[in-house]
Amino acid sequence: MRFVRCDIESDALDELHAGYDLITLRLSLAFVRDRTRVLNRLRERLRPGGALVVITPVADSVPDDRREIALDEVEIALLTAGWRTVERRDAQGLAVLVLRTPVSWPVAYGNKGRPSPHALSGAGVVVTDAGGRVLLGHSVRGGWELPGGKNDADESFTEAAVRELAEETGLRAELGDARLLAILMDSTHGIPRLTAAVRGTAFTGEPVVREPHLIRRWEWHEINDLPALASGLFTPSAQVLDTVWPGLLPDLPPVHRHPVA
């Protein structure tokens, strides 16, 4: 028999050979912080047919002020996941778990349930003509704005930019011609707002008003005219323009800009 003393959470386990018939954790697993990782390293050291035995107080059987020494049913289900054979015995407030034949499956993915609406997200796309002029639409609400809009479910920001460009202006661009420059974060009416700054590098067609209930007209604008547009700029469009031409627009409302490499 050989006695090895080590901390199974922080020490290297090189001294623990592979091929144990029995590994027992008695009244100790509740005090282990990274239980999944520790049990993974121990189960790797079981020989075929070997057993890992966990003896633990059950949360329902201890006073509330001693909850930290016990595991509840959710925690027990978590530690027994990944074993082909699980035997459980109950003994005076203790659960005795005998785990045999560890198995592995590809990790599964899931959601936490339907989330409550939290933020607005969309894309603004900058396209320029052969003369370097940028396309802006005059909104029915007043002011100028870039082509763009909210992204649909399961749609990337560049996909949204290409789709919105076609729906609003009739200009056609390939997905490979849309380059994500940055993600911009600000808020409107107390709601977080994410705007993707997208640069369209190529397109075909001529701009036409496709959604007259939103945009009255599309015009190509000289870049140097933007700081003095009489009708003003939609704030997210201004922030996207400032991403493409940094420092062009003075006194912009604050925004968190996260450039994309």
Rank of each mutant, 00 (worst) to 15 (best):
V4R: 09
I8P: 01
E9D: 09
S10T: 15
S10F: 15
D11P: 05
E15D: 14
L16M: 09
T24S: 15
R26L: 12
L29G: 04
A30E: 04
A30L: 04
R33H: 13
T36W: 09
L39W: 01
N40H: 15
N40Y: 14
N40Q: 15
R41W: 12
R43L: 08
R43H: 07
R43A: 08
L46H: 07
P48L: 08
I55D: 06
P57V: 05
V58G: 08
A59L: 12
P63S: 09
D65G: 02
R66F: 15
R66W: 12
R67A: 15
E68C: 12
D72V: 07
D72I: 08
E73T: 09
V74L: 10
L79Y: 03
T80F: 05
G82H: 01
R84G: 05
R89F: 10
A95G: 11
V98D: 03
V98M: 11
V98G: 06
L99Y: 01
P102E: 05
P106Q: 04
Y109L: 11
S116Y: 11
H118A: 14
A119M: 08
A119C: 12
L120R: 13
G122E: 01
G122N: 01
A123F: 01
G124Y: 01
T128Y: 00
T128W: 00
D129L: 04
D129E: 05
G132L: 01
V140D: 07
V140Y: 03
G143Y: 02
P147S: 03
G148K: 00
G148W: 03
G148V: 01
D152A: 13
D152I: 07
A153Y: 12
A153P: 07
E155D: 11
S156R: 10
S156E: 07
F157A: 13
T158F: 03
T158L: 01
T158R: 05
L165C: 01
E167A: 12
T169F: 04
T169Y: 01
G170S: 07
G170A: 03
A173G: 07
A173C: 09
R179M: 06
R179G: 02
L181C: 10
A182E: 05
I183E: 05
L184I: 06
L184W: 00
H189N: 13
A197M: 02
A202G: 11
F203Q: 00
F203Y: 14
T204R: 15
T204M: 10
T204V: 14
G205C: 04
R210M: 12
H213C: 09
L214P: 00
L214Q: 11
R216C: 06
R217V: 14
W220M: 11
I223R: 14
D225C: 02
P227G: 04
L229I: 11
S231T: 12
G232M: 04
G232T: 09
P236S: 07
P236D: 02
A238C: 05
Q239C: 02
D242G: 06
D242M: 00
D242R: 03
W245M: 02
P246R: 08
P246H: 06
L248P: 04
L249N: 02
L252I: 09
V255S: 03
H256G: 03
P259V: 05
P259E: 03
V260W: 11
V260K: 03
A261S: 15
